[in-house]
């Protein structure tokens, strides 16, 4: 089956069309993991590419994500029946004393669209919470977000907490947020910095394989 139509429905943000195409593909006997990888994930890859190139903006990404999630909900029971696992687990949160969530939410959505199981710790997340969630869910990726110059320095404390616990080499730590830079990420000892949500999802996949 050709999944072009499904990918285009995701780009158009049409939840209705995505639902119809996914249902029809399952009825025709298409494997759910193939619908996921060739349709939904590739569709979101294209959305991410357009977002990275400033060809579309947050509202367009949000309606594409909504459409993707509609398809994913239909596929989930089928994927569970066939014991298809996510590509990895990622814990994500906005650091302590910072309550901004849209950037963090976008990264979480793009990670889901890339096939990750995402544990969203929310906002105002402490080092202890990051660490305990990473352990509890056996996460390989930890993503921290900060929008404020006043809160970004807390990211270093989180990394230090992972080190102090002897858990630093069990996870790859990614950071992002408007005031951050690669230089800052290097200084605090993060494994990766990305400037937008789509790049974050791509980089997370790469880190899994490093």
């Amino acid at each position: 089956m050709d999944f072009t139509e499904l990918r285009e429905a995701i780009l158009d943000g049409s939840a209705k069309q995505v639902s119809a195409i996914v249902t029809s593909a399952l009825e025709k006997g298409e494997l759910p993991e193939k619908i996921l990888s060739e349709g939904l994930i590739k569709g979101m890859d294209e959305v991410g590419e357009l977002f990275s190139n400033n060809e579309i903006y947050v509202p367009e990404v949000l309606i594409s994500v909504r459409a993707m999630k509609t398809g994913l909900e239909i596929l989930k029971p089928q994927l569970a029946l066939r014991d298809i696992k996510p590509v990895g687990v990622a814990v994500i949160g906005t650091v302590k004393d910072d309550l901004h969530d849209i950037g963090k939410n976008l990264v979480a959505m793009m990670l889901e669209g890339t096939g990750f199981e995402v544990i969203d710790a929310g906002v105002n997340v402490s080092a202890e919470q990051f660490l305990s969630l990473a352990k509890e869910h056996n996460a390989k990726i930890v993503c921290m977000s900060a929008l404020l110059t006043t809160t970004m320095s807390y990211m270093k404390e989180v990394i230090e907490a992972f080190k102090a616990d002897g858990y630093r080499d069990k996870v790859k730590i990614m950071v992002g947020g408007a005031p951050l830079s690669q230089k800052f990420a290097d200084e605090i000892g993060a494994d990766a910095y990305t400037s937008d949500a789509a790049s974050a999802a791509k980089r997370a996949l790469e880190l899994l394989n490093e």
Binding site: D97, D98, L99, H100, N124, L148, T150, T151
Partner: peptide, 12 residues
């Protein structure tokens, strides 16, 4: 409103 120790008040 949540007022941080260091940063400014932000809507929570």
């Amino acid at each position: 409103i949540h007022i941080d120790e260091i940063g400014q008040p932000v809507n929570a």
